[in-house]
Amino acid sequence: MAKLQKSIEKRNALIKATIELVNNNGFHATPMSKIAKMANVSPATIYLYFENKQDLVNQTYVEVKAEYTKYAFETYDENMPIEKGFKLIWKRIADFKLKECESAMFLAQCDNTPMIDEISRQEGIKHLQPLLNLWARGKNEGIIKPISDYLLYAYAINPLSFLMISQKRGAITLDANHIEEAYEAAWSSIKVCK
């Protein structure tokens, strides 16, 4: 059992080092040797858990995406009214991005570059299914604009990454009023105007 725990700890250290180094240096400037050094393991140890650097980054992405969406949907009930459900999910996403900044920054980088392979990207999208289902229901009920889910995500969710990065840079300190204003702007961008 101690051996299994040690193995899990090494793999987790590699994931954590990958997130930190990719966030600080980018994908291409993060060699396996640096990841191993930061994780305090030999470079050969990486290959016990991952086929190569691409596999390490892909698996890190899928794990972080799963952690992110688990948090986002933890208190969501699919029977909630559309706006109430969206607000709850949106606020949980905002909370995650501001509290788990390193993980959120890693996801933002992955979402905006070709460093993740398509299979892993599709696996990550599956984790967003409750939000996609909510939007589909909202479109059917005439509450959400009948536009692509990519556009809905771009207007309603992606601005949170910009705000998170701006706060990390020290350009803004987000308070409860900012979060509420950002939510209202997100909701306004995707709801059908009546």
Score class of each variant (00 low, 15 high):
N140W: 13
G142F: 05
E141N: 09
S148I: 06
N79D: 09
H28V: 10
K10M: 09
S42N: 09
K126H: 10
F27L: 03
A185E: 15
L131C: 08
I119W: 11
N58W: 08
E74D: 15
A94Q: 02
M38L: 10
V62A: 01
D111I: 13
E63G: 14
E141F: 14
L131K: 06
P43T: 05
A171L: 14
A94D: 03
A104M: 04
D77S: 01
Y61S: 07
V62N: 00
I172Y: 11
T60F: 03
Y47C: 04
L98G: 00
E123K: 02
P130S: 00
K16F: 12
A136Q: 15
A44Y: 04
A29F: 11
I157T: 02
E118K: 15
D95W: 01
E141K: 03
E63R: 12
Y150N: 12
K99H: 10
T75Q: 08
T173I: 15
I157F: 08
Q54A: 11
L107W: 04
N24S: 07
E51W: 10
N40P: 06
T69S: 15
E118N: 15
K6N: 15
L56G: 01
N12E: 06
Q109W: 15
K16A: 12
A72K: 05
M115T: 04
C110Q: 02
N24Q: 10
E180G: 14
I8A: 08
S42C: 11
T60Q: 05
F106G: 01
Y68N: 03
I89V: 06
C101W: 15
P159N: 07
S33Q: 12
V57N: 02
K99T: 11
M38C: 08
D95P: 04
M105R: 10
E123Q: 07
I119V: 15
S166D: 13
K139G: 05
N58Y: 00
S161I: 12
E67S: 14
S33G: 10
Q54P: 09
E78K: 07
N79Q: 10
I46T: 00
Y49N: 06
K53F: 07
D95A: 02
D175M: 06
Y153S: 08
L14R: 05
S188H: 13
N23H: 05
M105P: 08
K194D: 15
L132C: 14
N23E: 03
F73T: 03
F86D: 04
C193Q: 11
E118A: 13
N24K: 06
G138C: 03
M105K: 14
L14Q: 01
K6L: 11
Y76L: 05
E51F: 10
K70C: 12
L56C: 03
E20W: 09
I157Y: 00
L107P: 03
L4T: 14
K145I: 00
I179V: 09
E100P: 13
T69K: 11
V41A: 03
E74L: 14
K65P: 12
Y150F: 12
E118I: 14
N12M: 04
